[in-house]
Design a protein around this nucleic acid. Sequence first.
DNA 1: ACATCATATGTACAAGCGTACACAACGATG
DNA 2: CATCGTTGTGTACGCTTGTACATATGATGT
Lengths: 203, 203
Amino acid sequence: MAAATRRHDPDRRRRITEAAVRVIRERGISALSHRAAAAAADVPLGSTTYHFAGLDDLLLAALREVNDGWLARFRAWSDSVDPDRPPAEEITRFVAGSLAAERSRTELEYELYFAGLRNPVVRPVAAGCLDEMVALLRRHVPDEHTARAVIALLDGLMLQYLLTGRPFRPEEVRDGLARLLSGSPSGGLPHSGTGSPPPAAAG
Amino acid sequence: MAAATRRHDPDRRRRITEAAVRVIRERGISALSHRAAAAAADVPLGSTTYHFAGLDDLLLAALREVNDGWLARFRAWSDSVDPDRPPAEEITRFVAGSLAAERSRTELEYELYFAGLRNPVVRPVAAGCLDEMVALLRRHVPDEHTARAVIALLDGLMLQYLLTGRPFRPEEVRDGLARLLSGSPSGGLPHSGTGSPPPAAAG
DNA sequence: ACATCATATGTACAAGCGTACACAACGATG
DNA sequence: CATCGTTGTGTACGCTTGTACATATGATGT
């Protein structure tokens, strides 16, 4: 069989990484093991331990892959935003996609977030993802502070939709975003635009 | 020694549960095992398998304990709210506590959320927690829709604070909340007050 | 052609796991 | 006091895991 003599196949590392992502998607991070990834990639066990220094290494590679996919989709959305339509509506469009066609990708991304809470090698990936999203969103909202709030609202809402089975209501999301975006740009907070940070406000 | 002859100790089940919470707090859900809980509770292994039908049972009991503690704190906050002060400020007070003195409790609660995403026996606990928080918050905001948005913003912001090491800025939280609460109560959404739900809006 | 080296593979091992189960100790009931 | 059922305890079994390692293979440079 082809599988038996598959030797010297180029970028096997990548194939194992993608198999690891598949394992996580289907059975969760806790089910990721050298053996599970090897089986999913149809390679022998020794192959995974050769290409990855340890299990953490494999997990990190897989979560980076997940993150890249998520950010690519967000970037694509950002490029497709129509500046003539209300931002709240455009952002709602992204949320709708995240909960429907791209739901499994979304579940993966939140799995990454939670892993980051515990695992110090994963945390920078999750934190970097947040920063990158803020930077991209920054183009469609008045300031960074607002961008962070919007991301927070999105994360919280998607978490609610994923946890409770509550049906997705676009108006709900749109309305919340509209309120968040309606405030005066530098209303109560010295917004950290492109200048220097404020001199520390209140404890 | 006392430990050797400790027999017939009342509510041993509870002590094991609390030990399990301690294990989760210190080493994460993935580190919870019958043996780890037994060691933390200073009881023999057989004791945990006697009091809990399976590992899922132990995990569920521990996460319920976590959830009870979290909700008790939120309830205490809700009761202590000064109606004469701006709600945004009072809610910010809760967030501040969650990230400082009660931070480890907060980390536990989010661990519960993430477990709920994957584990179907945990999900109802997490979902119920969200509903309970909405119900409690309902007393301080105009409608349920707003309450859900506020909870979402809080969850998203706390997640950001926990993941990135960004220092906590009360004004940031307060300002976002103020914007969310400033909108017209029934602005763009038929709010699901105490009446009947709207006849389904959009796909 | 030959040597060299990165890559590929199968196997082995120690550790940790959930769970089952036989037995010991105790409180309650008669 | 005898009996019984609940509670507590120690141990053992089968399984999965991460990792190490000896070996095999094919590409590469000379």
